[in-house]
Design a binder for these strands. Structure first.
Lengths: 139, 139
DNA sequence: ATTCTTCTTTAGAATTATTCTAATCTGTTG
DNA sequence: CAACAGATTAGAATAATTCTAAAGAAGAAT
């Protein structure tokens, strides 16, 4: 049994486990994503990687699949840049609640919230700022 | 001396203080943003508000001005939604360093980092998740 | 005040990441 | 293996934002 087929049986099992049909595209993407150590990908760079390997998966499918995997709990989305710019007149030390449903922000005073245990940043880097977003939803 | 003119002298002083020419558009936006309690705005909704008051400021200028105010330290940008989707194969409890210059993510283990003092969410809401992004830049 | 120079504003085009659409194809089930 | 629900795809559409290049205002110098 070759490495690729071992990868794909694991991927197929994982997909079945979360109720997703193991199509060629999903199996190939899952194999790539989960065969090695943890990684961070964007749709664009995963699509390029796939193309580089000679696999044929459309960009739309890469987007669909990343979202399906995320809903299924296989991936998690990390939010670091702004699709919609929210600007705050309060420039002091504080953080935010974000009500996803309404797109509303509520301030959390800086005296209330504390972040501890931030490791040293990579060599040659300094901390610019620490952003905390507490995402809340209807109970 | 009327309220509007008091607002605009304050706005003019504030703009001069950060080295921005007090043009009509900047004065009007600063007056609106800083006259009352702290607020959160998007370019789009501020532009609508301005239009509703009968003031004429183009959307491009609202964008420019919000960024200038932000660079000048008068505003702060809050990042809550994703312009570029980063997906992480690590779905466990952890947070991230974000190297803005390169657009790179580095995991911070969940055992390392701790967030304390999060107030109770608004009534009827529950915390979905708490995201911490430690933004780092070249020292 | 008038002119000069530089900074600003603006409308509209361009860009970027993403989602939608509608046609085609593929897994799974009976 | 036929049929159907679900998946994939190319390309169009969308949304927020930025860019462009031309016209307009601020402040300085005369």
């Amino acid at each position: 049994m070759g490495k690729a087929s071992r990868d794909s049986s694991k991927a197929i099992a994982r997909l079945r486990g979360v109720g997703l049909r193991p199509t060629r595209q999903r199996v190939e993407l899952a194999s790539l994503l989960f065969k090695g150590p943890d990684r961070h990908v964007t749709a664009e760079n995963l699509h390029e990687e796939v193309a580089g390997l000679g696999l044929k998966i459309s960009l739309a499918t890469v987007y669909n699949t990343l979202h399906q995997f995320t809903h299924a709990g296989l991936l998690r989305q990390v939010i670091v840049d702004a699709a919609r710019g929210y600007f705050d007149t309060n420039t002091g030390d504080h953080q935010h609640f974000f009500l996803e449903a309404e797109g509303t922000l509520i301030d959390i005073p800086g005296e209330d919230i504390r972040v501890a245990g931030v490791p040293a940043p990579p060599a040659g880097m300094t901390v610019d700022r620490v952003d905390v977003v507490v995402r809340v939803k209807r109970a």
